[in-house]
Design a protein around this nucleic acid. Structure first.
Lengths: 256, 256
DNA sequence: AAAATAATTGCAAAATCTTGCAAAATACGT
DNA sequence: ACGTATTTTGCAAGATTTTGCAATTATTTT
């Protein structure tokens, strides 16, 4: 049976223990003087509130504020399983010979890694990471030009418009830092936001790829509204309230 | 059976070990204290998240640059000394805060590697290899958008015009496959040629970087005439006849 | 072409996790 | 205080996941 609430006392103990370097269930159990089953339930609670991340065998501390864009090479592994599952769902939306856009971000990057399962796509992207992934594939690759933003490894800003306006994109697969039903999408950089909006307005069909850590989060700059999105792909079970809003906006939701 | 998720603890260990120079399965197995089969499954997970690249016998770290480089290695190693000589001469033509264009090709790439000796350049390029070289520099980097041409790792074709026409370039550093006083420059691909001509016509001052193996050679497609070039930088002692033509066309020649 | 080395896959053992349940602890109304 | 309702806990059975081994398949070397 799932518990209602974890006492803040033990919550502190666990978080403190985590910071001290403890990782395994056995360690926590010994430290807190409770059974392993209880530790697991504790970790379950803490994961639900986002204080830590559970893994087989124990737990690891959660990274800083998610509003700060993770440095690129850093935690692409965060939520890797979730991202990969989302990528598979997205892949199912792509047919051979489609002409698609790939946005920046690690979730979309996971999709790029799956594209060898399709034939002769035309892939437009502003992400150098995605491009690197596709260098050796037989797909046609078109890079959006523009100013390079090191932290996200994307090409962004007004210059991207000159090329984007010349292209016709069937399906755009977008990432985001935050997504909330009320505010829409948000990201950390105005130029990045500019390019995202530009692309979404030019694509026939816009897919937003967002793992559960993005839902309900707002970042600095608005980068598109709900009206810009046609389909939301996520691995999370969304709250009823969110689902209701999405349904009213005629946004399709794809989950595993 | 493929595993769900790799514990971050071991993930860190492997990545750390990789950075420390380990490469083979046996080494990882010894380091982590797990069987080789498990190491292989670990590497599989890490490759899926893009943290490394698996190779027969082990794994190697993956960076964008490393991935972009290999195709070039063959050509780069040929006449490496000459190209480097030329790059140094070209570097002397660049001042802090200049706004320059870098073309594709290994000679120009050698120049890109020297650019950390200047401050705050604005570098426009259509070469992914050059871009990879500049990813971590403090220079401002602008990529020309366009269709990706795998062999040269450049962005080429009519799409490049949309962005190029918006930019003002002080100095353009161009590579070429062939250069002859009679025919001008030539290259192997029409799209490549198109973009080269486009850039040269928009730059204030055009530098052609050509080692001696290029001089007197003609390739398939004309990519600009002598009139497009302001300066020829080469390491070779040019024949009197060639020098004479260049002088008549008011093309400056820079040699060691 | 054969031998050697490495990778993948199926399988079973070990470790870990989830869940139902009853006992213990806690909260709550009187 | 007392009894009852609610929540938490530990236990144990059953489900999952991870792991190492070994057989098979693939790749590289000789």
């Amino acid at each position: 049976m799932q518990r209602k609430l974890l006492s803040p006392e033990r919550e502190d103990l666990i978080v403190r223990a985590l910071e001290a370097g403890m990782r395994t269930i056995a360690e926590f159990s010994a430290e807190l003087g409770v059974s392993e089953a209880t530790v697991r339930r504790d970790l379950q609670s803490l994961e639900a509130t986002g204080r830590l991340r559970r893994v087989h065998g124990g737990a690891e501390p959660m990274t800083l504020d998610r509003r700060l864009e993770p440095l690129f090479n850093e935690k692409t592994s965060q939520m890797a399983a979730e991202k990969s599952r989302i990528a598979e769902l997205a892949l199912a939306q792509i047919n051979d010979h489609d002409s698609i856009f790939l946005d920046g971000g690690s979730t979309v990057l996971a999709l790029a890694r799956h594209l060898n399962e399709r034939r002769r796509l035309t892939v437009v992207t502003n992400s150098l990471s995605a491009a690197a992934e596709l260098l050796e594939t037989p797909h046609r690759l078109i890079l959006l030009g523009g100013e390079f933003r090191p932290i996200s490894r994307t090409l962004v800003g007004p210059l991207t418009a000159h090329l984007a306006n010349e292209l016709h994109i069937n399906k755009a697969f977008m990432g985001t830092i935050g997504f909330s039903p009320a505010e829409g999408m948000s990201t950390t950089d105005p130029n990045e936001a500019y390019t995202k909006e530009l692309i979404m307005r030019r694509a026939d069909r816009v897919y937003l790829l967002a793992d559960s850590s993005k839902i309900g989060v707002s970042s600095l700059v608005k980068s598109g509204t709900l009206a810009d999105v046609d389909v939301l792909i996520t691995e999370a079970r969304l709250p009823q309230a969110v689902l209701h809003v999405l349904h009213k906006r005629k946004i399709e939701v794809i989950t595993p």
